[in-house]
């Protein structure tokens, strides 16, 4: 059951770009998700640009990549102009939240990855990330992506869970997403990635995120749309 179809992001036909910032911790697989999101656009016939991070950004560091629908030039997204923030980890979502427009949507895994002890000497891990994100944007969705992924069989599936949630806002067809996932992920993991994708999508749709006006609690996750 797709809701609020009229509010969905119309990709690539309005002449305007749709900007997606993906934030996470190195090693979480955020770049793969960016590739899937970009691949979907290619299959759909929409122009797309994306950026990746290489080099020093090895495992464990803060990682940000971007996907830009409707552009074939620069993947770099200016501050305050992202329409979506896909947060693989709560703190990293908060770190890159200044990229979001006030009308943007944050889709954030509630997972917490504690930074190193040296980092914690400088500042503590914030406890009120959800409230902070809520202030900065129209819609903030926290979902237990890690829990869902683990249930399906592998914590590394969180990217597909988040993409499934993201897909609820986009007008790419299910078959495009399916093809995009099939094209990008390792062959042996296609089925589970599709399952994770579906779970993320259904979670978002069932929770009525798109039309909810008040915070509702579903399976320990809070959804708010202002």
């Amino acid at each position: 059951m797709k809701k609020n179809k009229g509010e969905k992001m119309n990709t690539g036909h309005s002449g305007k770009t749709i900007n997606v910032v993906i934030a996470g911790v190195g090693g979480q697989g955020s770049i793969t998700s960016g590739q899937i999101a970009a691949r979907a656009a290619m299959l759909h016939g929409t122009e797309v640009a994306m950026s990746e991070v290489h080099g020093m950004a090895q495992r464990g560091g803060s990682v940000m990549s971007t996907v830009r629908y409707g552009s074939n030039q620069s993947p770099v997204i200016p501050m305050g102009e992202a329409d979506f923030l896909l947060g693989f980890e709560s703190l990293e979502a908060l770190r890159y939240s200044p990229y979001l427009r006030s009308s943007g949507v944050a889709i954030v895994s509630d997972q917490r990855i504690i930074p190193t002890i040296e980092a914690l000497k400088k500042a503590t891990y914030p406890t009120n990330i959800f409230a902070e994100l809520k202030i900065q944007t129209k819609s903030a969705i926290f979902l237990p992506a890690l829990e869902i992924a683990a249930e399906i069989g592998n914590p590394r599936l969180i990217g597909s869970v988040l993409l499934g949630a993201f897909s609820a806002f986009m007008d790419f067809s299910a078959s495009i997403w399916k093809q995009a996932i099939t094209d990008i992920v390792p062959h042996a993991t296609i089925e589970r990635n599709l399952q994770a994708f579906r779970a993320g999508y259904e979670f978002t749709i069932d929770a009525d995120v798109l039309s909810a006006e008040k915070p509702v609690t579903v399976n320990d996750s809070v959804f708010i749309t202002a």
């Binding site: 020093m56 464990g60 560091g61 200044p98």
Partner: peptide
């Protein structure tokens, strides 16, 4: 042209690359 949203007011712990 656009109002830029305020940056985070919270001090956030950094997450620099580290040796594995």
């Amino acid at each position: 042209p656009k109002a830029v949203p305020s940056t985070n007011s919270l001090p956030l712990p950094p997450r620099p690359p580290v040796m594995c």
